[in-house]
């Protein structure tokens, strides 16, 4: 992901297309087209803002961008995202987690194989995350159902991010820079909800009791 010239993320202001370097515009368009094509119609009907890390775009380039995303059922909001401009892309969010300010998205459906959800903030899924699906976010992940796919919490390095699920049986679990995977042999699962967090530099699962 970090190799891509642009990324699409959800934020408080709707979708934000972050472009890392506007001078490579044609590559940016190519990369965006690939990502949108891969997401199928996940973003259908959404409105997106553009955030430039380096450089600026001409109005012709903006028109071209608008046309591209219109092809995927999205429309362009030309207002710059106010919230984004205040975050420096090089500073890790790691040591200043202002949780009360985070975004949280509520997904009221099951995320199925082949579907990917990327979000800048926390994710709550009212449904399952099936094997073959992927949830990546900068905050915490809460699944009110079974988590069988890949989950990555604290994707921008937040070490105190957690993953919670009623049934926590992921293919792979990532928190910040750490990765753990399901054991190869079948292990009996506890009946109740579990939570995963980083303890002494490894991802640990424990039964959730409040």
């Amino acid at each position: 992901m970090s190799q891509e010239l642009c990324s699409i993320k959800g934020s408080r202001e709707g979708l934000v297309i972050t472009i890392s370097d506007a001078s490579q515009f044609s590559e940016v368009i190519g990369s965006l087209d690939r990502q949108l094509a891969a997401s199928q119609s996940f973003f259908m009907g959404a409105s997106a803002k553009v955030f430039l890390r380096v450089g600026s775009l001409t109005s012709e380039q903006l028109d071209q961008l608008e046309q591209l995303i219109a092809g995927y059922g999205m429309h362009l909001d030309r207002e710059p995202p106010s919230f984004y401009s205040s975050i420096s892309p090089t500073t890790p969010v790691q040591d200043s987690p202002k949780r009360e300010e985070d975004n949280t998205i509520l997904v009221r459906r099951t995320i199925r194989s082949g579907q990917r959800l990327h979000y800048d903030g926390n994710v709550v899924v009212m449904g399952d995350v099936n094997a073959g699906a992927e949830v990546v976010c900068t905050g915490d992940i809460v699944v009110l159902g079974s988590l069988r796919g890949v989950a990555h919490a604290g994707a921008e390095g937040r070490l105190d991010a957690t993953v919670f699920a009623f049934r926590l049986e992921p293919t792979q679990l990532r928190i910040a820079h750490l990765i753990s995977r399901a054991p190869d042999e079948k292990v009996p699962l506890p009946e109740g909800p579990e939570i995963a967090r980083i303890v002494e530099n490894t991802i640990q699962l424990s039964i959730y009791n409040h």
Partner: peptide, 14 residues
């Protein structure tokens, strides 16, 4: 079943 799950997602988006 995995493929069927994928198809359910595609059908929904269609």
């Amino acid at each position: 079943v995995r493929d069927a799950d994928r198809v359910v997602g595609l059908l929904e988006s269609a």
